[in-house]
């Protein structure tokens, strides 16, 4: 492969997890891919006219309609008899996916269209300046869920998007993390090999919004997984087939790396609530590694 599918030189922030995620995704899917992109950081930093990072055909229409635009692309490819040779990816950020774009995404799932939807989850509206989204975690300090004397940040946990995707009965749903790039690419390759709608949600740290050191992007992502706050799970036909096993570390290990949770560090009661979220995940997905297992993705 000579051509770069996602070229450097774009205008993403230093340490941007989403740019890393986007490159891993498109390189796993390969050159015979058409991408429909929601409005958001990725669209803005990768396509500032007259330049573009994209070495595949790529279209941006609006904030909330990538899933529907991709549906039109898929239908057109079927009409042209080309669908079997071309992957269609729709992608967006967490707001474009779980909030404003949820209806279009649900429609795409329900229609059974042969499209991989990728959600780059940086857990807030970063492009507009760190406002909370439906995927902002509990207690995170954002510009519209600020911590203050009467608030400890975002009042609700993350919307369970993988479960919402699964409720549509689609053939493949997975979470991934830029902290585990090989696992991420394996999931993308698997997803595009399956016919029908697929959903992959990728945890992509945002140094600006999460207020961590840009060099720590991969570390922050890994720590989220290891704390049980971002379980890496994989479903086929709604059945959980694999999880990444962990030796759970305390959630403070993750929280203390980031300015968005700084207000919690002297607040053990709130940290306890976040630990409970992690514990719930660990139990629900059976994440804890047993003595006979290695710290690896394991079949359920």
């Amino acid at each position: 492969m000579n051509r770069q599918l996602f070229a450097p030189g774009h205008t993403a922030c230093v340490g941007c997890g989403q740019s890393l995620g986007a490159r891993l995704v498109i390189e796993a899917s390969g050159p015979n891919t058409i991408v429909a992109n929601n409005t958001g950081c990725l669209e803005v930093f990768s396509t500032k006219y007259p330049e573009s990072s994209w070495g595949v055909p790529w279209i941006h229409s609006l904030f909330e309609n990538a899933a529907a635009v991709a549906s039109g692309i898929e239908a057109a490819l079927i009409y042209l008899g080309k669908k079997d040779t071309v992957n269609v990816i729709a992608q967006g950020g967490d707001g474009g996916t779980a909030d404003i774009g949820l209806q279009a995404l649900s429609g795409m799932f329900e229609r059974g269209q042969d499209i991989l939807y990728v959600c780059y989850d940086n857990e807030a509206y970063m492009n507009t300046g760190i406002q909370r989204s439906g995927l902002t975690p509990f207690d995170a300090n954002t510009t519209t869920s600020p911590a203050g004397s009467a608030s400890s940040g975002n009042i609700r946990p993350k919307k369970p998007m993988p479960e919402i995707a699964n409720a549509h009965g689609i053939p493949y749903v997975a979470t991934a993390s830029v902290g585990f790039p090989q696992d991420l690419q394996r999931k993308v390759k698997k997803a595009v090999s399956i016919k029908g709608p697929k959903y992959i949600q990728i945890h992509v740290p945002c140094p600006l919004g999460w207020r961590h050191e840009p060099v720590q992007t991969a570390q922050v992502a890994k720590t989220a997984v290891e704390a049980g706050l971002y379980p890496l799970v994989e479903y086929e036909n709604t059945r959980l087939i694999a999880v990444r096993k962990i030796k759970p570390s305390p959630v403070e290990e993750y929280l203390k790396l980031q300015g968005r949770f700084k207000h919690l560090l002297n607040n053990p009661e709130e940290i306890k609530k976040i630990q409970e979220i992690a514990n719930h995940n660990i139990e629900k997905y059976n994440l804890r590694v047993t003595s006979s297992e290695k710290n690896l993705s394991t079949e359920c």
């Binding site: 058409i34 429909a36 279209i59 229409s61 609006l62 909330e64 309609n65 899933a67 529907a68 635009v69 991709a70 549906s71 039109g72 692309i73 898929e74 239908a75 057109a76 490819l77 079927i78 009409y79 042209l80 209806q103 279009a104 649900s106 429609g107 329900e110 229609r111």
Partner: peptide, 22 residues
């Protein structure tokens, strides 16, 4: 290809995507 959608917003988006694909 007759694409049944969940809204007019998506109907317009589907034809947008189709024409963009030629």
């Amino acid at each position: 290809q007759f694409v049944n959608v969940e809204s007019e917003h998506s109907a317009a988006s589907v034809v947008l995507g189709a024409v963009a694909t030629g």
